[in-house]
Design a protein around this nucleic acid. Structure first.
Lengths: 357, 357
DNA sequence: GGACGCTGGCGAAGCGCTTCGACAAACCGT
DNA sequence: ACGGTTTGTCGAAGCGCTTCGCCAGCGTCC
């Protein structure tokens, strides 16, 4: 009968719902979007039809007509030296929060590079972009500025004009670790950091933590050295040995490298140095890691969940054209567990800080 | 002038390209899709215009008209006890291969559950679905069957009728580990497995590996016990101690738990048992892990990349309505490194297998 | 030299949705 | 009882693309 007759998709359309409920297509649309007042009666009839037919709006059609896809892009790093579990936590937090805002998440990997971003944005596949693992001088930053779509960075580039960035205040995190150790009477500490490659490509969090450690150490009159560290057990071992050779007085370690945490503990054990009796250890790592180590580690957790949530919520605000702060830094919290104790021969005063004065 | 005049989107449309190239819209479409023959001359004119105007087809419009979104969904597990780095490797492999097939990847988390899948599929946001971390009796399996969209599972449920599944042959992997150890003369071995929760929820790979180990051990006359193992250092320590108490003769360990690998080595060291001199260790874990341990671990890697690629390629085949095998199992390869050696008092015969006969 | 088949291109009809303007009907104050 | 607001609903015009059917031109084959 029908002249053209492409195969119908099987899924009910808004027209089916309208017909079933005995109203106009536009009425169904308004019921679903709430953008115009609809009488209680009509609304209920429509909603009943929706449920009965199992109607789900077609995403493509919706995107086309409304010019918003309700999808955001998440650009994940895939390089060496990334903190895999942290990244996963971010990703899941982002997906979960995005769903809470009625958005889905499209996964992009850094290695498709700028053109990937461009394709996605120009094709209107996504409404906005979330970029992780930003470097100090990230090539994607100028791109994002000219993308024509809202974006939020997780991490802090050197120049934040016109951007929206969220991150843990790693500078402060470094300070907090040192302050804790100084308060326990430690006078010689070391930062065992991320792999050298991470520093080399100017990843913000590594540099900022190091700066925080160095600065706070100076302020508290604590001797401190910072060393990058690869992620394999042998290398960690070598580094730790090297540290004790360079600083015989060394009594505390700040470790910012998930993969190194285990080997560090193993190495210290092998060297006959007990934690925390002989050496205190503070880690900057996910809580889960710190909990699972033995002894349980005093740590500054990276609040991946919280950062992810914030990032999404900032992006949503940008999508609604609301103003957003340029930089949002989360305050680090240090959780004291079993891996830090007063330095030998420097008993902690009762307020736990005197030694740092 | 124009009566209605919504704001134009800014992006050039196919009509702009057509006008610029002096051809019909449909011609541009055919040039881009290659679905009809277009003369060299016209094609080049069109392509030039496309580049010049920076044209990118609108994803929503394309999806609406063609009834295919060129997006696939990837459902990632987010529960405890998952092997985070492996999951990440999967994810990146999937994204990369999907891009190679001109598709993007939408990230879903298991915890949005069945309705998430349903929403996505019914809304035509995605053309197909990739599901990871499938359990033996997964609730999503019936859902997938009735989803009306092609899907591929990574992992193996108990019942595979009408499905398409890819996975490493973990049963074989278990066997391979045992065969290697038996060949080295070990007569008493243990499998230190995933956390108990993983077995409890019936995750295929854990069960299959255990079965493979047990079966091969029986066949080779090797004594074997299998123990689940939590992912924290203290627990690992306890388990290892327990194992040696139960099997005084124990001379080799198969470890299928990334997070446990480090602690196992630490514990053995603490117990004064050298690897591989006193105890051999085989791990089922990503190569990277095995490489970074010290000593470097003999291992059966989980070929996440390869599995991801296969999964995508199978899904693409299904999208094209081509038949696909129900189950695709990848053959495990064992890489010998420095953590396995001949059992004490059982010198390896020159062909390395006699002890197993 | 007309029937035939190709090739290359065009026009138009949707795909399923949102949104704008129009417009009855109900409600208000006077 | 009559203009002026709301309030609730409808119709229709696209959003930007794909795809179907059509046709003009051109070589081919008896």
């Amino acid at each position: 009968m029908s002249g053209r007759g492409r195969v119908p998709s099987g899924q009910p359309t808004i027209a089916d719902v309208a017909r079933h409920a005995g109203v106009a297509v536009s009425t169904v649309s308004y019921v679903l979007s709430g953008k115009r007042a609809i009488s209680e009666l009509t609304r209920n009839r429509v909603l009943a039809s929706v449920r009965l037919l199992g109607y789900h709006p077609n995403a493509g059609a919706r995107a086309l007509a409304s010019r918003r896809a309700n999808v955001i892009a998440l650009v994940l790093p895939l390089r060496s030296g990334i903190q895999v579990p942290v990244v996963m936590q971010f990703a899941t937090a982002v997906v979960t929060s995005a769903r809470g805002h009625d958005h889905d998440v499209l996964l992009l990997t850094s290695d498709e590079g700028p053109q990937g971003l461009h394709r996605i944005a120009a094709g209107a596949l996504v409404d906005g972009v979330l970029v992780m693992d930003v470097e100090l001088h990230d090539v994607r930053v100028p791109l994002l500025r000219g993308l024509g779509r809202p974006s939020v960075l997780i991490g802090l580039p050197a120049e934040t004009d016109g951007l929206t960035c969220v991150d843990l205040d790693f500078h402060r995190a470094g300070q907090v670790c040192v302050e804790h150790l100084a308060g326990l009477g430690h006078r010689s500490i070391a930062l065992l950091g991320a792999p050298a490659a991470v520093y080399d490509r100017g990843t913000g969090f590594a540099h900022r933590t190091r700066a925080g450690v160095v600065e706070a150490a100076a302020r508290h009159g604590v001797e401190a050295v910072a060393l990058p560290c690869e992620e394999n057990a042998a290398e960690v071992h070598a580094r730790v040995v090297e540290l004790f050779a360079r600083q015989p007085e060394l009594s505390a370690l700040v470790v910012q490298n998930e993969a190194a945490v285990g080997p560090v503990q193993a190495t210290l054990a092998a060297l006959g140095r007990r934690v925390p009796d002989d050496v205190s250890v503070v880690a900057v790592c996910p809580d889960q890691f710190a909990e699972h180590a033995s002894p349980r580690l005093t740590s500054v957790p990276v609040p991946a969940e919280e950062i992810g949530r914030q990032a999404v919520s900032l992006l949503m605000r940008k999508l609604r054209d609301e103003p957003t702060p340029q930089v949002t830094l989360l305050e680090p919290r240090l959780t004291v567990r079993d891996s830090t104790a007063a330095a030998t021969g420097a008993p902690v005063p009762h307020d736990g800080r005197a030694a740092a004065r």
